[in-house]
């Protein structure tokens, strides 16, 4: 039987590579957010309360003055909808957690620490020590680096000079590759891209996000029709 402290140490040693990998993106996020007029305090607050890389990058891409509040919230909801499935899979493994530990701990469930927790749960029982040992340094690093990026970002000048304005696009293309599941994803990406670009030209922002996302989902639904049986067999 290992102590909570041992579990926390194991959690930290599992999470630190993901933490280091996220640091440059955190800095970049802060700098780009500052470029859209967000203050370091607002960046800190968003990182502390939302803590979701993909949704935060998308929000800053959409951000304008005055803030398009409904579009920002809707885009965040769509991007984070995957948490519903992740949480549904993780919750049965949290038997050793007190109720408050579940409600607090799940607030910071992100792709990286969720994946590590699922991996850990295959061989050990998942303890609060492990979960929070992983979570606390990871969240602290994201908070520090995003806020630092917002403070030093403006001193670096026009982000276009380094192509930093394109970094969003490159990050999102790289993330899309991480979600790739073959033919269905190809149809999704094609439909979402074309519908979004057309809507952007014809109706303007922020409608392109909704139109693109819905067309992408419709394409996935249609493309999965013939594959449904195969997909079930693969999952089994």
């Amino acid at each position: 039987m290992s102590s909570a402290l041992d579990d926390a140490r194991t959690g930290f040693s599992d999470v630190w590579p993901a933490m280091l990998a996220a640091a440059p993106f955190a800095l970049l996020f802060g700098a780009l957010a500052a470029g859209k007029g967000l203050s370091p305090f607002e960046v800190f607050l968003m990182s502390a309360l939302v803590f979701a890389g993909g949704a935060q990058f998308a929000a800053v891409e959409l951000w304008a003055t005055p803030a398009p509040v409904a579009a920002l919230i809707f885009s965040t909801l769509l991007i984070n909808a995957r948490h519903v499935l992740m949480g549904t899979s993780l919750v049965p493994k949290l038997d050793g957690f007190a109720s408050w530990q579940k409600w607090l701990g799940l607030a910071y469930m992100a792709d990286e620490n969720w994946a590590l927790a699922e991996k850990r749960a295959r061989t050990h029982s998942l303890t609060p020590g492990y979960w929070f040992g992983m979570l606390i340094p990871f969240v602290a690093c994201w908070l520090m680096m995003t806020t630092l990026g917002a403070i030093v970002g403006p001193a670096l000048g026009d982000p276009r000079r380094f192509g930093a304005d394109f970094a969003f696009t490159a990050i999102f293309i790289a993330l899309t590759a991480a979600f790739w599941k073959g033919r269905v994803t190809a149809w999704t990406v094609g439909a979402a891209g074309i519908a979004s670009a057309l809507t952007y030209r014809l109706a303007g922002p922020p409608w392109h996000v909704l139109a693109g996302a819905l067309c992408g989902l419709a394409a996935a639904w249609l493309a999965a029709g013939g594959d449904a049986v195969v997909a079930t067999e693969e999952a089994a």
């Binding site: 993909g54 998308a58 891409e61 959409l62 885009s75 769509l78 991007i79 909808a81 995957r82 499935l85 394109f166 969003f168 696009t169 999102f172 293309i173 993330l175 899309t176 979600f179 790739w180 599941k181 269905v184 994803t185 999704t188 990406v189 439909a191 979402a192 891209g193 074309i194 519908a195 979004s196 670009a197 952007y200 922002p205 392109h208 996000v209 909704l210 139109a211 693109g212 996302a213 067309c215 992408g216 989902l217 394409a219 996935a220 639904w221 493309a223 999965a224 594959d227 449904a228 997909a231």
Partner: peptide, 18 residues
């Protein structure tokens, strides 16, 4: 399948104009 497609659909919808 549609649920799994949410992250790529949203990511691409956001960057397509750029």
């Amino acid at each position: 399948a549609a649920f799994d497609a949410i992250p790529p659909a949203v990511l691409i919808a956001v960057i397509a104009p750029s």
